[in-house]
C-alpha cells in the first residue's frame, strides 16, 4: 500500500517556512500521537527516578524523622505515573490501528521487502556509508524497527509492573488478573530483575532517540524536533520516499543513485 501523505496543507510553502522554495509543511503527527509521546516521556522520567529510588533508596535520613514518608510518597507517585504510562502505551497501541498512515503499525513494524531495504539504507547512513538520511515523511524504517523493539519493552515493563503490583496488593482485581508472579520461572525475583533492567534499556534508548532526532533535524532541516510539538514536518517537495513512488515496489534501481559514490 502506498503511504500517500494526507492532511496536506496547501499554504504556499515559501510563506510558511520562509526557507527553501521546494518544501512544504505536512501534518504528520496527530494530536493523540503527540500527546501519548509526551505523556510517555514524562512518565519515563518520573518512573525512572522514582523506580531507581525504590530499587536502591539513596535518600536515607541520618536520624529518625517525623512523618516524612519518603518511600511512601515515592511509591505513590511511581504508581500514579505507572497508570499514566500504561494508559498512554495502551492508547498509542490502539492509535496504531486507527490513526493516520504515519502512526500506523504498518509503518512502524517492518514487514515488507522495501521496508527492509530502506531500513538497510538508514543503517548505511548511520555507519557513514550513505550521505543523506532516507527521505521519509513519517518514521524511517530503522526507527520503526527500534520502536518495535522498544514497544515490546514498554509492554514488558507494564506487565512486570502489574505483576509486582499484584504481588504486593494481595487482593482486588489487579491481584486477580496479575497475581501469578510466582508462576514466572525463577519467581518474583525474575520479574523484579526484568523490571529493573528494562528501566536502563529505556534510559539508553532515550539517549539514542534524542541524539538521532537532533542529528536528523540538523541534517534534513525538516523540523523533526518541532514536529513533536506542532505535528508538522517540513518536507521537501518531490523528495520523500512516498513522493518518489518508492513505496510498494522493488526500489533497488531507483535507489542506487542515492548512495554515496565514495
Amino acid at each position: 500500500m502506498a503511504a500517500i501523505p494526507h492532511h496536506v496543507d496547501l499554504n504556499p510553502p515559501s510563506e510558511v517556512t520562509g526557507e527553501s522554495i521546494g518544501s512544504m509543511p505536512i501534518y504528520v503527527w496527530e494530536v493523540p500521537v503527540r500527546a501519548t509521546h509526551w505523556l510517555i516521556v514524562t512518565s519515563i522520567v518520573v518512573l525512572g527516578a522514582t523506580g531507581l529510588y525504590i530499587h536502591a533508596p539513596y535518600l536515607v535520613p541520618s536520624k529518625p524523622v517525623d512523618a516524612s514518608s519518603v518511600m511512601a510518597s515515592v511509591r505513590f507517585w511511581h504508581e500514579i505515573f505507572a497508570i499514566v504510562f500504561s494508559l498512554s502505551v495502551a492508547f498509542r497501541f490502539y492509535w496504531g490501528f486507527v490513526g493516520n498512515s504515519f502512526a500506523s503499525w504498518r509503518q512502524i513494524i517492518p514487514h515488507r521487502r522495501e521496508q527492509f531495504y530502506w531500513l538497510g539504507q538508514m543503517a548505511k547512513y548511520y555507519t557513514f556509508r550513505r550521505r543523506h538520511p532516507v527521505p521519509y515523511t513519517g518514521h524511517n524504517h530503522l526507527a520503526g524497527l527500534a520502536y518495535t523493539v522498544v514497544s515490546i519493552g514498554l509492554f514488558a515493563q507494564v506487565l512486570t509492573g502489574l505483576l509486582l503490583f499484584g504481588w504486593i496488593m494481595q487482593a482486588g482485581p489487579i491481584h486477580l488478573l496479575f497475581g501469578w508472579g510466582s508462576a514466572v520461572p525463577g519467581g518474583i525475583q525474575t520479574v523484579r530483575l526484568l523490571h529493573n533492567i528494562l528501566t536502563f534499556l529505556f534510559l539508553a534508548f532515550a539517549i539514542h532517540h534524542v541524539y538521532s532526532a537532533v542529528l536528523v533535524d540538523i541534517e534534513e532541516r525538516n523540523g523533526v524536533l518541532s514536529s513533536m510539538f506542532s505535528g508538522y514536518k517540513n518536507i521537501k517537495i518531490g523528495q520523500t520516499v512516498e513522493a518518489l513512488g518508492l513505496v510498494g515496489e522493488a526500489p533497488e534501481e531507483t535507489a542506487r543513485e542515492h548512495e554515496v559514490d565514495d
Partner: peptide, 9 residues
Amino acid sequence: HFEFGEFAL
C-alpha cells in the same frame, strides 16, 4: 521504617 525511608545501610 520502610515507608519513612529509614534504612539500615
